[in-house]
């Protein structure tokens, strides 16, 4: 029986070597290793053998089987063996997961600012009026503070901290970060949810903001410009430029509106003599910024005579939607839970 096995092995290896295509190879496989293949049948016969012999023969058959399998595998990798595969067939795609476009944007923002030393923080998204407004210098009658614009929690106001609000911006993190760090330098990027009582194509009652804050010695408007330029070029592309214009916020002085050059009309404001549909005269508003108001520093227990700083707070959705090629027409689409949208990103 042993000789039979050895000759079977020699035979099989020879036939594999000679095989010229995949179907011949498959035929050899079936003849030796298939359900009724010669080697398979040998296994069934060893039951009749005695204990000692059984073990020896069994081992031999096993070795032979692995040899044949190994040779088959080797031959299959041989380039001269043409596989009989219809290469015009499309692939079957695996199910891929998706993180949300907003999450992807947040991570990108986080990384860009991280590379210039800003650490990501997160502060309460439901917070005291004190941090959201009072400490930032919003006067008692500021429109942002009234019930038409900001969501209030139905709870008795605290005598010191005021009512509880759903933060209408991430700026509540400014004084909180100053107090946490105790003394400058401070470089943070606070990214989180914010809420405002509004809903239309460009506003959703819930949105995300990223708030940059830098406080140190001798910080000037030039540093703010440098930081904004760096972000814009990293996020939107090297060819985009920024400008800052006068604006007004209670918690910065001076305050700025930041614009990015339009990528569609390339800053011209016009396309074939029609006003550009995307921008205002060649510029897209990206958000607000400014030099931290001395009173805000004081509320953060920082001496405005020794330190200065800048801050900016921009919409994550806004910068995501402004990114060339994203093509999301409406912020409400961004918040859709339709898988046909979610699986596109």
């Amino acid at each position: 029986m042993r000789e039979d096995i050895v000759s079977l092995r020699t035979q099989a290896v020879a036939r594999i070597t000679e095989a010229e295509n995949a179907s011949e190879l498959e035929q050899v496989r079936a003849e030796y290793l298939g359900r009724n293949g010669s080697l398979t049948l040998l296994f069934k016969n060893i039951a009749s053998l005695s204990g000692h012999e059984k073990r020896q023969v069994g081992t031999l058959i096993n070795e032979t089987k692995s040899t044949v399998e190994r040779e088959l595998g080797r031959k299959r990798q041989d380039v001269s063996i043409k596989p009989e595969i219809d290469t015009t067939l499309p692939g079957i795609k695996p199910q891929r997961g998706h993180t949300h476009l907003i999450s992807q944007t947040i991570e990108e923002i986080e990384q860009i600012f991280h590379s210039i030393g800003f650490v990501r923080m997160r502060y309460p998204e439901i917070d005291w009026d004190y941090y959201a407004f009072e400490a930032l210098g919003f006067d008692q009658y500021h429109p942002a503070r009234d019930e038409w614009e900001t969501f209030l929690v139905e709870q008795k106001p605290d005598p010191q901290m005021g009512p509880i609000v759903l933060t209408p911006h991430t700026s509540n993190g400014q004084v909180r970060e100053m107090i946490r760090r105790k003394s400058p330098p401070i470089r943070m990027i606070n990214i989180g949810k914010a809420y405002r009582r509004q809903s239309d194509a460009t506003h959703y009652p819930m949105f995300h903001q990223f708030e940059g804050l830098l406080v140190d010695k001798k910080i000037s408007i030039a540093h703010l410009k440098g930081t904004l330029d760096y972000f814009v070029k990293q996020f939107f592309g090297e060819d985009r430029v920024t400008r800052i214009r006068p604006y007004n916020f209670p918690f910065t002085e001076p305050s700025f509106e930041v614009d990015v050059s339009c990528n569609v009309c390339e800053g011209a404001g016009k396309m074939s003599n029609e006003p550009c549909k995307i921008c205002k005269e060649g510029w897209l508003e990206i958000g607000g910024a400014g030099m931290v108001h001395p009173n805000v520093l004081r509320h953060g227990e920082i001496d405005p005579k020794k330190y200065s700083g800048f801050a900016f707070g921009w919409g994550v959705e806004r910068v995501a939607m402004m990114k060339p090629g994203i093509n999301i027409p409406d912020i409400r689409v961004l918040y859709s839970t339709d898988l046909r949208y979610l699986t596109q990103f």
């Binding site: 030393g117 650490v119 923080m121 330098p185 030039a222 410009k225 440098g226």
Partner: peptide, 21 residues
């Protein structure tokens, strides 16, 4: 004119990072 001001990336220290984020 804000456009006449230079644009400078602030230098200085890099703060530590460690968070749930």
């Amino acid at each position: 004119g804000y456009h006449n001001l230079p644009s400078v990336v602030p230098s200085g220290f890099l703060p530590p990072i460690k968070s749930i984020l």
